[in-house]
């Protein structure tokens, strides 16, 4: 099965219409029949899954950038479970799943093997992508991830962050936002939902490792995501891309609202979208029209306890302060907005 199955292209709608207004080279890859379709259709992700969308675009962009010389290592989690229920697989690329917490290390091993084989004249120049959800990245896989960064191994690690352990029934991870309801942070007691903490924003921790490339992206801006993956694949060494992928199940949002939620996360400053090289911030996607965090929180059932008869004004203000801090720290306001 060396020939890749091409995209069966049925979609019509805003993106295709928008594409027609653009120059051909600027058109979204979604409209491209030649896209590699690395994560093939027929997988078992939920309707409106942000992770499936993010992974599809990220891996296709990586395939495109590496002339299809790509191997992927995958952490346990939604992406792994919905793409490879035995004996089916949606992956059209060489792909391995080992454990929940070791994906970065497995990718390191693959990269090492590729390097040796190439030295021996027995192999091609193949690139390695490791991917996992926020649980597999920011919690259980964090040790291996940090080790991979510190050694500057030749791996692009992509984290699909949906803010919790959605595969096991929506439990809290260290990427779960403050005040969010999960199965292990119920909206009860004096501090309902996930307690406020210092946060564990892994892109910033990745920057502290001074690795060649760190970027964040959302599924609201797929072109930006593709560009970042393409850029990452042009570099060697440890690279990290953290993609915000809304989860209709865990967030309590409509499946048709996935893109909207991702865009609201960016436009409110809740999720800063930026690029950094060797530990230094290089650019950020500007917020065109800054919105209050309430616009992002209100449609999500995981924040429903903040609203209703007695709105948790104080809590909402604290979340707003977090977003404001992001805006200041990453310089997110566009000139017109500022």
């Amino acid at each position: 099965m060396s020939a890749l199955q091409t995209v069966k292209f049925y979609q019509t709608g805003t993106f295709t219409v928008g594409n027609r207004l653009l120059a051909p080279e600027e058109r979204s890859v979604q409209a491209n029949m030649q896209r590699t379709n690395s994560l093939n259709s027929g997988h078992r992700a939920c309707q409106g899954c942000g992770e499936a969308l993010g992974a599809r675009y990220a891996i296709d962009a990586a395939m495109n950038a590496t002339n299809r010389q790509l191997i992927a290592a995958n952490a346990t989690g939604c992406l792994e479970v919905f793409s490879t229920p035995y004996p089916e697989t949606s992956w059209q690329i060489p792909w391995i799943h080992s454990l929940f917490g070791n994906t970065a290390a497995v990718a390191t091993g693959i990269a090492a093997a590729i390097k040796v084989k190439k030295q021996k004249g027995q192999g091609q120049d193949v690139c390695v992508v490791a991917q996992g959800g926020d649980g597999g990245t920011t919690d259980i896989g964090f040790g291996c991830l940090s080790g991979m960064f510190e050694r500057n191994d030749d791996v692009l690690y992509i984290c699909y962050d949906n803010g919790g352990y959605m595969n096991t029934g929506v439990q809290r991870s260290s990427a779960t936002p403050s005040a969010a309801r999960t199965a292990t942070t119920m909206p009860l007691g004096p501090e309902p939902g996930n307690p406020f903490g210092q946060g564990k924003f892994v892109p910033a921790i990745a920057m502290a490792h001074e690795i060649p490339y760190v970027a964040t992206a959302t599924v609201a801006d797929l072109r930006d995501l593709e560009n970042k993956v393409t850029k990452a694949m042009s570099l060697r060494g440890a690279r990290y891309i953290h993609i915000l992928v809304p989860c209709p199940l865990g967030w309590g949002t409509a499946s048709h609202d996935t893109i909207r939620m991702a865009r609201l996360a960016k436009e409110t400053g809740i999720f800063p979208v930026f690029e950094a090289e060797h530990g230094e911030l290089k650019s950020a996607l500007a917020i065109r029209r800054p919105l209050p965090v309430e616009e992002y929180l209100r449609p999500q059932k995981r924040f429903a306890h903040l609203f209703g008869k007695n709105p948790a004004v104080e809590t909402i203000a604290r979340i707003q302060a977090q977003a404001d801090k992001n805006i200041r720290r990453y310089g997110l306001l566009s000139k017109e907005a500022a």
Binding site: M1, N74, E80, T84, Y86, P94, W95, H97
Partner: peptide, 8 residues
């Protein structure tokens, strides 16, 4: 010759 290793 792509394969998936470690399926559920």
């Amino acid at each position: 010759e792509p394969v998936s290793i470690g399926a559920m």
